[in-house]
Every structure is written in C-alpha cells, then in structure tokens.
Design a binder for these strands. Sequence first.
DNA 1: TGTTCATATGATTATATGTTCATATGTTAT
DNA 2: ATAACATATGAACATATAATCATATGAACA
Lengths: 103, 103
Amino acid sequence: MEKKLNYNEIPDIEVLFELADLFKVFGDSTRLRIMVTISENEMSVLNIAETLNMEQSTISHQLRVLRQNKLVRVRREGKQIYYSLDDDHVKKIIEMGLDHILE
Amino acid sequence: MEKKLNYNEIPDIEVLFELADLFKVFGDSTRLRIMVTISENEMSVLNIAETLNMEQSTISHQLRVLRQNKLVRVRREGKQIYYSLDDDHVKKIIEMGLDHILE
DNA sequence: TGTTCATATGATTATATGTTCATATGTTAT
DNA sequence: ATAACATATGAACATATAATCATATGAACA
C-alpha cells in the first residue's frame, strides 16, 4: 500500500495555480501578522496599524488582499471598520505552518 | 469562552517572519506542481522536468529551494538524483489549502 | 453644508523572485 | 583519460509585489 495524499487524483493545473495564489497571501509577514492580530478579537484598521506599528495605508492595502481572498470578515460600525479572521480554515493553515517550523 | 487559536500566545514576530518564508515556498505554482508530482513516487530531476514540460534548469533551481526548506528528500542512485516529498506535514499543508479553495 | 475622522485607493519606487541561457560539477562506462 | 549523461549553479533579465506618499471616499455630527 502506497502512501497517498488525500486528493486521489492529481489536482488540475489550474487548481494548483489557485492554490499557489492562496499560499502567496500567507507568504507575507505583514499579512500574517495582521491575521494573527485579529485572530482573537476583531479590530479596526487603525487599531491594527497601531498594534503593528505600521502605516494605516499599508494595513489597508494588505487588508484588501485578505478580503479579496476571503480570509477576513468585515463589519462596519459608524466610522470604523472592524476586521476579523474569516473561518477556522485560516487558523488551521497558520497552525500547520507553525507545526512545521517548530519541528 | 473565546474562540482561540491553538497557539496560546501570539507567536513571536521572528517566528512569523519564518512562517511567511515557509508559505512563500508554497506560493509558487512550479514548486507546488513539483511537490504534487513527487508526492506519490520519487522522481529524477529530468523526469520531473519532462512531466511538467519545463526546463531542467528551472526544476533544479526550484528543487534547491525545496531542499533548503526541508520539504523534499533526496536520494542519489548512479547519475540520477531522486526527489520525494519529505514528510506528511508537507502534504497536509497542501491539503489544507485545497480544502480552502474547494470551499 | 462644512468639518472631522476613519478607511480606501492610485501612482511611484525599491526590492524580491522566477526563468532562461550558458556553463560547471559530478557520475558512469569505455 | 575521455566521452556521455544528469544535475547544479551563476549571471542577466523581466516581472511581481510591498511600502510610501498623496489624495479620495464615505460616515458622523455640529
């Protein structure tokens, strides 16, 4: 019996391109830090920027990427917009990566 | 009781940089295709190149990246060098990503 | 309506990254 | 030793991407 991946067929090349795009999103430390930061509680853009000590604009640009990839949830309340992690998938992917790094 | 990540403390910023680097490796379609290709059986460099219809040099460069990140195993047999996926972690990370993409 | 505050966006620049071509290294066999 | 083959590597180029600055959009409230 061979070791097998859970995917029984080799994924389509298009799927693999999509998959690469997804991992690209995780492959930037600013975005990762944002994701980890909002994983416990939702936060406003400015709050995230302050927490990470980065420009509001930088955070906003990266939140856009996260939004486009459906990795975050958005909620408006008055002038503020609150971001939180979208689902547990996102968390699991980060945890998986941590597992690999930490041996 | 709050939703919590498995990590109890927010990971160090350095760890997150490392983590980003790891995901960067997964964030390239050529490398992903290589990983999927050698996930079932080990393959020689030329074999991988032929399978993916890409230059030997390209494959070799990317295998180097995979090697450096300990994502592949290497075995020499005569003139050929055979590559295979390193461990199940690698597979799981790919599967996680697929899960997210495929809803 | 006009002002203030929070967020988003466009353009620009600097940097990082993937591929290609040419060539080097290393192995096997004659 | 030399030829033939498999793999690795260096340099150069093209492209992608993140951060910054300046500005626009949109909400709240006087």
